[in-house]
Design a binder for these strands. Structure first.
Lengths: 138, 138
DNA sequence: GCCGATGCTTGAATTCGTCAAGAGTGGTAT
DNA sequence: ATACCACTCTTGACGAATTCAAGCATCGGC
């Protein structure tokens, strides 16, 4: 049962969807992961970014450095605490992020092979899955 | 719709299941990826291994080197073409691979939270998915 | 027997990830 | 205020994973 779902995911392009997408858009998988964690016009402290990326603070620094080099994000500060540095998407960053999400949400061909009824059935069943906080894009 | 499924995989432990499993078993994620591509007692040329791993030939060389160091695989040759080197699981390798598969197939807690009816519904819907050749373990 | 194509390996460079140490700031207690 | 500890981010060292360019041996025609 679970194996069906897992195997499907593993075999379909979904497993390395992010790798493929990042190649298409000329960025690295790391860039993509980070971009997805940032909401447009919503600066975020490095710390919470590292946390939701499940990685070291120094790794977050490195990632943001790479993103900043390519004008995808900008660093900022908060007046209340001069220790924290924030990260926010630039217009280019927001655009790239939107493209990534658009591209990631394209269903794999395996799913498109299903007919309308089967799709609806699957949809209904999936709706029962507990909502683990959606990672991006509502 | 597809987004539900994708988001589920993304958010649930499944995304880094391989990382966790490899830590448990004392191998690296790279080891795991490679092990899953090898059938026991079925030597495989490096080339096709690299291909199904979607990686460079030199990367495959590097990976197999690491596996060989740990006695998980052995290199061999084919009599018909002395250029190709084959890779085959050792007994230890086969055992490790089985453990990995066993562990990977355990469903994530999110799924276990569903009640029996919902599970059955999901199962029925998934059964309609086209069979993309199962990557491992029947 | 030469010559281009093929299969693998080697070496350098890049990305990603962790850990240890440091610089700067904030908060608190004396 | 000053001393001290905690917190945030950065830097540096290192290992894992990945790619590219170059090299070596071998194969397959011609």
């Amino acid at each position: 049962m679970w194996r069906d779902l897992f195997s499907f995911f593993w075999s379909s392009g979904s497993r390395n969807a992010m790798v493929l997408v990042s190649q298409e858009l000329g960025v690295t998988p790391g860039h993509v992961k980070a971009l997805l964690e940032l909401e447009p016009d919503q600066p975020r402290p490095m710390g919470t970014l590292a946390e939701s990326l499940h990685c070291d603070a120094s790794n977050a620094t490195w990632l943001v450095d790479r993103l900043e080099e390519r004008d995808l994000v900008e660093r900022g500060t908060v007046p209340t605490d001069r220790r924290v540095k924030t990260v926010v998407l630039t217009p280019l960053g927001a655009k790239t992020r939107a493209a990534v999400i658009e591209r990631l949400h394209e269903p794999p061909p395996e799913l498109l092979a299903l007919d309308r009824d089967d799709l609806e059935e699957l949809r209904a069943a999936l709706a029962k899955l507990p909502k683990s906080e959606p990672p991006f894009g509502a």
